[in-house]
Every structure is written in structure tokens, then in C-alpha cells.
Design a binder for these strands. Structure first.
Lengths: 222, 222
DNA sequence: CCGTGTGAAGCTGTTCACAGCT
DNA sequence: AGCTGTGAACAGCTTCACACGG
């Protein structure tokens, strides 16, 4: 119920936060199935997780369980929603109306659960003004500062080529955006005032290629 | 040239492999700029990396540098291509012709550098037979085993809803696919004979939401 | 008893710092 | 001299195992 505020949130690992999202998914599923109470062991068995890790991850934020019983599914889900900040709407700006940016702008995962794409931008005059699937009209990247301000953008998503990613990132941060998701295969110089998360889809294929090349036998726990 | 050590590949971390991909990108850029030699320190400064880590990562696979000088850019790039297995073509099958699957099937990152999408499947009869941007025609998921066998699929990409992800994964592995990239927000039960890599795009937004929430709270507290 | 919450142990990943080679 | 390659120190993450409270 009450957050243990004496632990600085900076000290909590990204790995833990990512697992909280996973636990949230699991609880949503259990809730839909009508389960009201679950133990860490049941969660672990059902979803191939580790029970001690579940308890440790949750313990960073409070005492949500009942000893001898387990966790109330609905209450724990609500706690996780609050911890992850998913109770408020997060407005997302996509920069780069190529293949990936266009897909993400109407990807259900980016338009549900508290997130909403408020604009998609591109530097190509031929793309500006065109409507993308999902209903948004591509706007000019030169309007980035105005759009960030007027639409109170929380999160910037970079899907431009690597060569222009740093400039877009700098513009986003200068415009006041505090969180950026970068899909460009570029090693960006990070600003201390904005959280930067890099996601490189191709790296995952290259990882699999490595395993195909070297592995006769490889564990499949991902 | 030869892999000097007989360290079992299982002992090398995914984190190291992912960084090898990053180093490869950096070297490709340096090569295009005409740089012939680079030290680990120069690489680190230029691309915001750690020089000791670069040397340690490379050392798992051999001695590629010259003491007192650094690394030959072209040679090191070639070594990384070989280590990651990018010298052979990797045939990729996308299962799920929704938003994300369609985008990935013609995403440049999935059709260059040794990777090639050979088919895209869906269970929806209305989608089967339709041509997606990029030129592929959607085929039926019921043909999965035949397609995997005939087109010698190396890597399966799952972009179906979470509820059907486990079945698709099982079918891929039973068909002989040894590497699977899963975009569905599901906790799959892994098969030991196939490498499974989970990528959940929404988790990244939720991570950023967590940081935004924390940043706001810190500002409010002072 | 039972399952949570948690110190402690064990393990993994990163960084340091320097011997050794060019 | 200069930079790599690497043992050793350090830091961070996971798992264990049990005291504690319901």
C-alpha cells in the first residue's frame, strides 16, 4: 500500500521494472480468468518465472502480499499500474514516418493501456500531409518543438535513419521531452535530463544468427 | 583468424553478443569514412562505449588487435561478421500478418545484412492471398510445416496475438526451426532445442512511463 | 502450517590496472 | 612508447533458505 520511499528509485534496476510489466500481463490474464488470489509460486509455475524474484521485485515497492495466503490479484495489478505510472495518459510522438514508424503509430501496443500516439512526423515533403493507417496525418519535423509543447508530449519515439537520430534526440530533449525510445541503430550521446532507451530490432536477429552458427545445443529460456 | 579458445559458446552472455552487433555497426561506419585502424579507446570515445569492455568482449573470440597499434577496421569487421554468422543467408519466416508482422516483413533491417524474409503467414482467410508491401503474398498458417521445410527457414518471427503464440512457437520448433523471435506479450514455455528471444515493444514504453512518474514525483518532493 | 519478505550466499557482469607484446 | 589482453577487484543481479506474521 505505502511505497517504501527510503529506497531511492534510481537504485532499482531496469531489469526489475521490465519484470513488473511482465507480472502485470500475467495478473491481467489471471483476473480475466476469474482468479482472485495467487501465490508467488503459482505465478512462477504458471508463467515460467522465479518465485523468489517475484517477491524481491515487489518488495522494492511495498508489502503487497498476505503471509500464508499470497497476493490479491486485482489489488496487486492496481499496485503495478500505479508503480509503472500507467494510470495517467502518456502522449507519444513518433518521429520518422518510414516503414517502422508508420507501423508503430497504429500498433495496438502503442495506443492502449495509457499510451496514445499524438503525432507522426517526417522530414520528407512528399510524406507530409499524407494520412497513415490509423488516421494520423504526417506532419513536418520542422514543427517538432511546437507539437511537443502544444500536445504536451511525454515520450518521443525515434524511427529515423541512424544518421539523423542524434539531431532528433537533441531536438526532443531541448523541446522538453523527458523520455525517448530510439529504434535507430545509432549510439546516441545521452542527455542527463531525459531517459533514453535504445531498441534495435536487427540486433535480435543477429543474436539468433550467432546461436544458429555456434550452437549445437542451446538453452531456450528467453 | 582462428578462434583461439575453446570456451563453450553457452558461457558467453547475450549482453556480449549484442555488443558485438553494436561494434559491427561502428566499424561499418568507420570503414565508410575511410578509417583503417582504430584503438579500443578511440572506438569508446567516438561511440560512447567502454574500452575495457570492448577488449574483453573481443577476447572471448580471439586476439584481433595489435599491441601498441589497435585494430584493423576491415579485418575486425570481417571477424565480427563471421562470429555472428552473418556471412551466410538467414531465411526468416514471419507468422502473423497484422500490423507489426506486415511492417517487419518489409522492414529494411530484416531484409539486409544476410537476412531475408521468405514468407509471411496468417490464420485469417481474408488476409491469405493478399499482397503486402514489399511483394510477399500472405500464406496460410496451416502451411507452416511445409513452408519451413521447403524454404529451409532458419528463424521464425512470431507476431500473432499472445493467445496463439505458444502454439505457433511449438509448431515452428516441431518443424525444425532452431531460432525464434517472439514479439507476442506471452510467457512462452521454451524448448531446449531452439533458441527463443522475447521482444516486447510495449515493455519499453512502460519502462519510460515508470521513469516519467518517478521524475515527476522527485520534482514534486523537491 | 503456509507463503511472504529478506538477509546472506552465490553467481554474473563490469571495470580496473598492469604485464607483456609490437 | 603505446595498446592489447587479462587476472583481480568490484559491482550488480539472482537464488537460497528461513524468520516472521497471518
Amino acid at each position: 500500500m505505502s511505497f517504501k520511499r527510503y529506497i531511492p528509485v534510481e537504485s532499482i534496476s531496469e531489469l526489475t521494472i521490465n519484470r513488473l510489466s511482465v507480472y502485470l500481463r500475467c495478473l491481467q490474464q489471471l483476473e480475466q480468468e476469474g482468479t482472485t488470489t495467487v501465490s508467488s509460486q503459482e505465478l512462477a509455475d504458471r508463467f515460467h518465472l522465479n518465485s523468489a524474484q517475484i517477491r524481491k521485485d515487489l518488495a522494492y515497492f511495498g508489502e503487497f502480499g498476505i503471509r500464508g495466503v499470497g497476493y490479491n490479484v486485482t489489488q496487486l495489478r492496481e499496485h503495478l499500474v500505479n508503480i509503472l505510472g500507467l494510470h495517467e495518459e502518456r502522449r507519444v510522438l513518433v518521429v520518422g514516418a518510414g516503414n517502422l514508424g508508420t507501423a508503430l503509430s497504429h500498433f495496438s501496443g502503442f495506443n492502449t493501456g495509457g499510451f496514445r500516439i499524438v503525432a507522426i512526423l517526417d522530414s520528407d515533403p512528399h510524406k507530409v500531409g499524407k494520412r497513415v493507417p490509423g488516421g494520423l496525418v504526417v506532419e513536418s519535423v520542422s514543427d517538432l518543438p511546437r507539437i511537443v509543447k502544444d500536445r504536451k508530449v511525454h515520450i518521443g519515439v525515434i524511427t529515423v535513419p541512424a544518421s539523423s537520430a542524434q539531431k532528433v534526440y537533441d531536438d526532443l530533449v531541448n523541446g522538453g521531452v523527458q523520455a525517448v525510445l530510439n529504434f535507430a541503430p545509432a549510439q546516441l550521446k545521452g542527455h542527463p535530463e531525459a531517459k533514453l532507451k535504445n531498441v534495435d530490432l536487427k540486433i535480435n536477429l543477429e543474436l539468433l544468427s550467432f546461436f544458429l552458427t555456434h550452437a549445437a545445443r542451446m538453452a531456450a529460456i528467453g
